[in-house]
Amino acid sequence: MQKKVLLDLVEIKSGIASVLPFLVGLLYSAYAGLKIDWLSIVMFFIAAVSFHLAANVWDNFQDFTNAKHETFKAGINDVIGREGVAKKQVMTVLAVLVVLATVLGFATWARVGGWLWPLLSLISYAVAFFYSAGPKPISRTPFGELASGLTMGYIIVLLVVLLNNPTHVDWRLAGQVFLVSGLGVFSIANIMLANNIGDLPEDIKEDRHTLAFYLGQTKGLILYLILYVLGYASLIAAVVMGILPWTVLITIIAIPVIIKHFKFFWHDRTKRGSFLLTIKNTVILMALFIIGMILGLIFIG
């Protein structure tokens, strides 16, 4: 398998959606004064990225296998059909990534202990499997945005915090982490929403009843904008409550870029006008958040 095909199969560009929340969790742990367990952090980082890429491979394989129209299997949105990737090759890549993620996940749990960390990990595995498999895959329902936003945007951050704070777990901590990760949760959910809005004509043919299917493209775009507002609201709430340093408000400078991309998306509701621009939004927001956290650690905490 050629390198480019492999990178397309694992959807390497979307890997940033798990890397950035990981960094958010790490920086918040440092700002909150937690002792960083660096070995567990490194193992979990490799496990999380491997698992995310495995989920992408599984999603692509299920979409190809369950496609109702041959035009989809040979379409630009399906790398397996487009590049003629053999099933054996797909399964090999999937197995390597799953084994790597699972082994490192168990090794991390052995260091952390407790019941919550493996429970959250199992929830992530279940979401990844049923996202594109089973009698009614999540990706074909209105809950894809919720599943992806919470799993990658929130659970990854919470797992990182728990690595560095395994003995103190309560609802207050979970709520604080949600506010900390809110900008990531809603922007990652928007990646899925944008993808579904752009894919709506194709999804209708494939009988995928996503959130965009029920809302339509116009209402879907309105929700898209609302989710960014909710992300900023959670960020501001975290600053007001003293959970995050005020320096993270540097993310506000991304608003003109988001509005510019939104206007483009409003007029061009295809994949070109949605998916990549939304990934850029997420990268910009999370990068600014990370810069704000670093500034907070240097000058405040």
Rank of each mutant, 00 (worst) to 15 (best):
106 F>Y: 13
287 A>Q: 05
108 T>H: 05
121 S>I: 03
221 L>A: 01
31 Y>L: 12
234 S>L: 12
182 G>D: 02
266 W>F: 12
264 F>R: 08
108 T>K: 03
98 V>D: 05
205 K>H: 10
95 A>L: 12
185 V>G: 00
65 T>K: 11
137 P>C: 11
125 Y>S: 12
148 S>C: 08
213 F>A: 05
43 M>N: 08
163 L>D: 02
124 S>T: 13
72 F>P: 03
173 L>D: 09
238 A>V: 07
32 A>G: 05
230 L>F: 08
139 S>E: 05
42 V>R: 06
179 L>W: 05
299 F>R: 09
250 I>F: 13
31 Y>F: 12
81 G>A: 03
132 S>G: 03
245 P>R: 09
272 R>C: 02
65 T>Q: 09
210 T>N: 03
26 L>V: 15
254 A>E: 07
46 I>Y: 12
195 N>R: 00
275 F>P: 00
35 K>C: 10
172 R>N: 14
206 E>K: 07
86 A>D: 12
232 Y>R: 11
275 F>S: 02
183 L>I: 15
225 L>E: 14
253 I>M: 04
11 E>D: 13
271 K>T: 06
51 F>S: 10
176 Q>N: 13
255 I>F: 07
143 F>V: 07
94 L>G: 01
15 G>R: 09
275 F>G: 02
280 K>Y: 15
15 G>W: 14
297 L>E: 07
63 D>P: 01
29 S>E: 12
88 K>S: 02
279 I>R: 15
114 G>T: 00
188 I>K: 03
159 L>R: 04
29 S>H: 04
212 A>Y: 02
41 I>F: 10
101 A>G: 00
225 L>F: 15
114 G>F: 02
120 L>S: 00
117 W>C: 01
272 R>I: 10
159 L>M: 15
175 G>L: 14
67 A>E: 12
21 P>V: 02
76 I>T: 11
233 A>V: 14
27 L>C: 01
249 L>T: 07
46 I>E: 12
45 F>H: 02
77 N>I: 01
139 S>G: 15
145 E>K: 09
90 V>D: 00
299 F>K: 12
255 I>M: 11
22 F>E: 01
230 L>G: 01
211 L>V: 06
